[in-house]
Nucleic acid binder design. Sequence first.
DNA 1: ATTACTATTCTACGAGTAT
DNA 2: TATACTCGTAGAATAGTAA
Lengths: 230, 230
Amino acid sequence: MELEGDLWFALLQIFRMGGHTRQILIGTSDFGRMIGISQQTASRRLLELAERGFVTRELTPDGQLVMITEKGIGAIREVYDTLRMGLEGVDNVKFLNGNVFSGFGEGAYYVTKNGYREQFSEKLGFAPFPGTLNLRLRSAADIRARAELEALPGITIKGFTNSERTYGDVKCFLAKVNDAVDGAVLMIHRTHYGKEVLEIIAPDNLRKRLGLRDGDMVQLKVYLSRDHVQ
Amino acid sequence: MELEGDLWFALLQIFRMGGHTRQILIGTSDFGRMIGISQQTASRRLLELAERGFVTRELTPDGQLVMITEKGIGAIREVYDTLRMGLEGVDNVKFLNGNVFSGFGEGAYYVTKNGYREQFSEKLGFAPFPGTLNLRLRSAADIRARAELEALPGITIKGFTNSERTYGDVKCFLAKVNDAVDGAVLMIHRTHYGKEVLEIIAPDNLRKRLGLRDGDMVQLKVYLSRDHVQ
DNA sequence: ATTACTATTCTACGAGTAT
DNA sequence: TATACTCGTAGAATAGTAA
């Protein structure tokens, strides 16, 4: 989150007053009363929001004209998008949480095969980074949710045969990692991992992109069908 | 707001992990890392959310099973509704802010006339409290916005004639006061107030319901048409 | 009237640690 | 391992004012 709680709520209050559509005139006393803080703190909040570029400010003799900037609207929309998907797309989404661990890279092996790579780009919309992020599921509910994914069609990446051997089908689901990065869950049919493991692919190296280390918890939003993916 | 900033963001994090759909297993260390606070503070946050009824909690040897309650979802939905109306209904809404003052109660006089009362109930969906809340608009933008309301059709309450005199038409707009209470803006056609005054009616006494005193600022969301009113 | 500085109070964070 | 207590302290909030 770019904006800590109290500051975000100050921004929300400006938003409620229509500050995203036009300049609004507010006094720090009124503003403070509206969100339950003192005049002085209200002053500091508005100052800080302006300093950090979330609002523009213009002092007048009887208050200040405040308006939310593009950046401010972005901060609001970020929360909005999270809430919308969670509240309205429930039927199409499964939430999973797991902890990062270092695996044997079997997924990485698959992901680099040319016979798969082109299909990934075409069917998932991105060329996967040549490596997977391994997650270990820890709660019964997560493991159950993973089992339910097995039963769903998902997005199928077709197997193929080359001179050496035959490669089986791979099933994927589009997913959002930590509510921030788009990627996909890889369900390799014959894997030696158990039912408590999930492999994630993404356009980037997720460990670097999200600053993940072994043991860190990661949240996944798995899209069961393509509808409503955002 | 029922929930102060930091606590709300803790709830949001649980939401992001799917805690509104099922119990999720989280450790206080992981949870803290995810929102940038210490293990101890994370523990306190979860404890307080549970104490205040926003989540249920169940301790296990390796973490706690947390799930958002109805009340918690309500707190999230409250913000969601605000954001949705602000971001998606912009064309249908005008935001106005004004300060409460004690007026001469002309609106109250109108609002109690039987010839109007029935129409209010029928066309606005509520029987108005016999009194109005007077707001004084302070910024040029607010006064301009009020003038724009004059030009719109709104909801017309027809005038009538009784043995004493003739009563003119009254125009209304549905509105939300302080993002919390449903009411309506009353545009009495011939009033001795100037262009910087607005009268609000609602099912309840707004001063009591919202704890308003003279001079307090009030925010209004005026719905220009009935579509998308929430 | 305002906003916002300085001084002071006090809340709330995290370190250390018990369970 | 967990969670969550106590406690010292940093930083935030308010009081008092200046501008």
